[in-house]
Amino acid sequence: MPEPLTTIKGVAAPIPNHNIDTDVIMPKRFLRTITREGLADGALADLRFHEDGTKQNDFILNKHPWDQSKILIVGDNFGCGSSREHAVWGLYQLGIRVLIGTSFAGIFYDNCRRNGLAAICVDHALRDHLLKVAENPEYCEIHVDLANKEMEDHQGTHSFDIPEAIRQDLIEGSDAINTTLNYADKIRAFEGAYWG
């Protein structure tokens, strides 16, 4: 069951490239596992590390203070490509709790919801503003509040929209299967008619 998430204050890092795909977020060599654990090293691995395993010092998440990031400000269509939920598990295990972008790929977006990682869509103007804010080591701390659907940076407060059902799931850390099994009778009735 996901950890509930209502508010979070933390360093935000800018990852401005568009179409960051799940092959980049979690390269396949980390996928050969039957558990959810141990994926922090894999998150954005080819951007964070050289082939010999040493750190890419010029990558944002390897620099202070962004090495403490809990929030990523991302380019359009983040999480496109493969359905691998390992991408979300890895980001979460790296300490990321919120992603803010203009659009997320559908499967990735659902995977975030099911793991207590808030993926928040904002318009291009606000995203571009947040990219600039996050670039500045002095002001890159952002406060995200799901209860009030607001985020605050050093310049002020911005409201955001998020589908209500998803917001509730994030705040409650709800177990979707448990909730659905409350409809077991309806599912059985549907099946009776469907399969004839």
């Binding site: 359905s83 979300v88 995977n111 793991n115 979707a176 299967i177």
Partner: peptide, 11 residues
């Protein structure tokens, strides 16, 4: 994703 695979298996 995998969480939804579990959801389909269970429901």
């Amino acid at each position: 994703g995998t969480s939804e695979v579990e959801h389909v298996l269970a429901t």
